[in-house]
Design a protein around this nucleic acid. Sequence first.
DNA 1: CATGAATGAGTATTCATTCAT
DNA 2: AATGAATGAATACTCATTCAT
Lengths: 204, 204, 204, 204
Amino acid sequence: MGLASYRRTISETKRASILAAARENFLSGGYSRAAMADIARDADVSTATLYKHFASKDALFAAIVEDATTTAEIPLSTDIEGKAARDILLAIGDAYANQQFDGRMNELLRVVIAEVPTAPNLAREVYKNGVLGRYDQLIAVLNALVARGDLKPHNTGEGALHLAGMVKEFVVWPALFTPRFEKPADLAAKIEACVDAYLKIYSA
Amino acid sequence: MGLASYRRTISETKRASILAAARENFLSGGYSRAAMADIARDADVSTATLYKHFASKDALFAAIVEDATTTAEIPLSTDIEGKAARDILLAIGDAYANQQFDGRMNELLRVVIAEVPTAPNLAREVYKNGVLGRYDQLIAVLNALVARGDLKPHNTGEGALHLAGMVKEFVVWPALFTPRFEKPADLAAKIEACVDAYLKIYSA
Amino acid sequence: MGLASYRRTISETKRASILAAARENFLSGGYSRAAMADIARDADVSTATLYKHFASKDALFAAIVEDATTTAEIPLSTDIEGKAARDILLAIGDAYANQQFDGRMNELLRVVIAEVPTAPNLAREVYKNGVLGRYDQLIAVLNALVARGDLKPHNTGEGALHLAGMVKEFVVWPALFTPRFEKPADLAAKIEACVDAYLKIYSA
Amino acid sequence: MGLASYRRTISETKRASILAAARENFLSGGYSRAAMADIARDADVSTATLYKHFASKDALFAAIVEDATTTAEIPLSTDIEGKAARDILLAIGDAYANQQFDGRMNELLRVVIAEVPTAPNLAREVYKNGVLGRYDQLIAVLNALVARGDLKPHNTGEGALHLAGMVKEFVVWPALFTPRFEKPADLAAKIEACVDAYLKIYSA
DNA sequence: CATGAATGAGTATTCATTCAT
DNA sequence: AATGAATGAATACTCATTCAT
């Protein structure tokens, strides 16, 4: 058993280093410019080993994306107990911004969008889990705030999109168009303005 | 003059057919998958002729993008005379939606975003002219409405981004993630909801 | 007749400017790197006109070479009347050096040598007329000097090659290996040394 | 170690066959006409393997040239002990002639000269190592002969160039201008004449 | 007669993937 | 199980030459 587990550990270490190298390569230059040979070199494995772990470049890319969308997901707590509506929404906005920038989700989105023609299923998956999924969580929070009487009853499904749309305008849109875009200094203020705008409409 | 004008006509015809073929190829499969040989074939010219007109693949791509961002621009009229604020904003939203879908601007944005790592200058240009430029026009309209007393005085710069962000959520965001995404049937209603949300905040 | 001669003049002017442009292009970068389009541009004519004058790139190259080998040839005077043997030989050496450098013959030789595999006949022609031809003239001079009693009777055919070989070592050999090689300052002294060496052997 | 050495052997075999094929292609038709695909075919490898071994056509050409100039160099022995001056110089001349013809150095020189405009550094290298280097060796021999009293004291640096120039006239000059030029039957006699001419000047 | 736009065949180079050891 | 050498298909770009006007 010792040998088997040793081998498994080695194997998992290699897999992890491959994923890291691949992520770096895919995110920095896009799908096409990432070369399997480079990824193998960066991961300190041979190309054959790379292919032992991932059957193809597409599969490796899918693994990167899936890895990012599943591990990076910090589920929003719908626990609103004892917190003001504004603070709750601000916290959500901040968490979102952090993930998009620190987790390099914006760069990932760019690469996924780039590959929509070639990997439509992957894009759909990302959109469903990474985008729409977040909305479900936000809607749940909004509903809870309505239920508690902080917000007027309203179409929270639509509202969530409106709020998210406003925030994205500052958080992801510019990042899509700029290489190595860093989190702007005044981002928190921008998000506050979005939340306040939302509250102006629906605050009870 | 007969010869010169004849040649110019021929040349412009070929140039146009090259641009059309290139546009189709770039938009449907992205930059990398578009092959110069295929574009030449689709445009019914030789590759050499293609290169006579456009010095490189990059240059051709830039021409496509510039062509799209300059010709497609329908300047928003800031003439608000005799029209209700809501109608004006709805008209702007509709115009925007039409351009994004009918002009295939969404597909273009996708390809431009895809090439941000390789063609950052082009992306910056598109962002400045195609995105920020539109905001300037919207801000001008909002200012006019404020001046007329339809809207409360407010930070129209920020407001324009909020309004645009909400609309984009329905108009461009899903289109980025879905190949050949068509204009949804209920889009007008979605835009109305965005405009109404905005008016709820700032209507005088 | 006026029109015809006018046309002929124009045509000859164009031909000359084509030859000049071609010469420049061929000599500076070699046969392959010289592009017919560039030559036409430099000569201020269209490519079609270029082809009206010279049927092919090969033909143009041959014309350049022939032009250079025939027009540049300054026939050596075999008139030795009243001049010392040493001075005569030095004058020949100087004339040779001038032609090789000022007439850009060294560059021409390089290009011709380069094209030996593709244009062997041309190379043979150049070798016969441009190289061996000069030897005949030199031999004639040597024979005259022998006849006058300045030199001991000897195999002047072989002697001419020996003398020419020594001189070439300084005049053409380094020029073949160096782009834009200029005439060295001490060339005259080097040539003197060669002539003196020759005279040491055969002086009467 | 078995695997590693096996691979090394295979790799070196392939490298050698690539070099041979490249040499043949470059020497017979010159740089431009040698196609990487043809070289790969002649070497029985794929183009990709070719590029694994040599990063570019230029690099491959440089390798050929370097290979030829380094491996072909048969250093002249300066050991003159017990041999007559004439025999020593004749032996040097013969060795030189053999190398130029049997080692196909003349063809190589032709190709290098052809590429002077495009690869000046390579040409300079060849000139320095392949041409001037040989002169240094010859000068050393001449100096030894002077020291032994066989030759009169003289400027052996200049003398070496004179002797070499005369010999080249028969050994390399015609070879440059003729494709597949073979060693002439009477070459030994020609070289003897050159050596004798030299001895006539400087023999003690 | 002069033009310049158009051509098609050719070339160097890259890269995802496989396979013998 | 791991290696890295080998592959072949694909691609951007060039250039001598021709032809309709």
